[in-house]
Amino acid sequence: MDVFMKGLSKAKEGVVAAAEKTKQGVAEAAGKTKEGVLYVGSKTKEGVVHGVATVAEKTKEQVTNVGGAVVTGVTAVAQKTVEGAGSIAAATGFVKKDQLGKNEEGAPQEGILEDMPVDPDNEAYEMPSEEGYQDYEPEA
């Protein structure tokens, strides 16, 4: 019985440690998101679009440190934060509304985080759909 109880105690310690790591990862992701939003706020009209992409990228980098179902929630929060940063930029006159959601080359930025393969159960990952990809044929 002692062996059984000791095993359960060790398992509990492992769960607590994993929860603490997840909590730490979420806190880091939130900190990076805040950094990115402050970065966007300090940019001029020309830099705002690039700044919004930076927020998304920093958040995406930190999301990889967070495991399990938390990833889905962090990704949703990050996307809403990026959308909010863009709205703030438009409201303050840093950028025109028609410039939001495009990178410096004018290509749409939507789907940055949505296409990231995420499995809350950590069982399997699927690649994003290939609808947006084109076949590449090298020139002879």
Rank of each mutant, 00 (worst) to 15 (best):
K96R: 09
A11Y: 05
S129I: 06
N103G: 07
L8D: 00
Y39A: 07
M1A: 00
G101W: 13
V3E: 01
K6M: 08
G47L: 13
G7K: 06
E104H: 08
Q109W: 05
V77T: 03
K32M: 04
Y133S: 04
A29Y: 06
G93R: 07
P128H: 04
A107G: 14
E61Q: 11
V66Y: 11
V63I: 05
L100S: 15
E35I: 13
A140S: 11
G84P: 02
V95Y: 10
G106S: 13
K6V: 03
A90F: 13
T64F: 10
S87V: 07
K21M: 12
V66T: 03
E126G: 07
A107L: 13
V40W: 03
S129C: 07
A69Y: 13
P108K: 08
V63M: 15
G51W: 15
G14N: 06
A27H: 07
K23M: 14
M1H: 00
A27M: 14
K6N: 03
V48I: 11
M1G: 00
T33P: 00
H50L: 11
A78R: 09
T81D: 02
K60G: 05
V82M: 15
S129E: 11
V74E: 01
D2T: 04
G14E: 06
M5F: 08
V16S: 04
E20A: 06
G101Q: 07
D119M: 14
V3N: 04
E126K: 12
F4S: 00
V95A: 06
T81Q: 02
D135L: 08
S9M: 10
N103D: 14
N103F: 10
V55A: 05
G36K: 14
K45V: 15
T92E: 03
K32L: 06
G36L: 10
E126D: 14
M127G: 04
L100G: 09
A107N: 07
A56W: 13
V66F: 12
K80C: 04
A19K: 02
A19R: 02
F94I: 15
T72V: 05
V95I: 12
E139G: 05
V55M: 06
D119H: 15
G101V: 12
G86C: 15
M127W: 03
G101K: 03
V95L: 09
K43L: 07
V37W: 14
A107W: 06
N122I: 05
K23H: 05
G47Q: 14
I112P: 07
V66I: 15
Q62T: 13
V37F: 02
V77Y: 06
V63S: 01
E46T: 04
L8W: 15
G51A: 14
T81V: 15
K6R: 09
M5I: 01
K21T: 04
E110N: 08
N65V: 10
A85C: 13
K10I: 15
I112L: 04
K34Q: 01
V71S: 03
Q62C: 08
Q24M: 14
G51R: 06
Q62E: 02
G67I: 13
K10D: 01
V66W: 10
V74Y: 11
T64S: 11
V63L: 14
E83F: 11
E123P: 07
G84C: 13
V15N: 00
A91P: 04
V70E: 01
A69R: 12
V82I: 03
V49K: 11
D119P: 12
D98A: 09
G36M: 15
E35A: 08
Q62H: 11
M1L: 00
T72S: 12
G7S: 15
D119C: 11
A85G: 04
E28W: 06
F4W: 03
G101R: 15
G25M: 14
K6L: 12
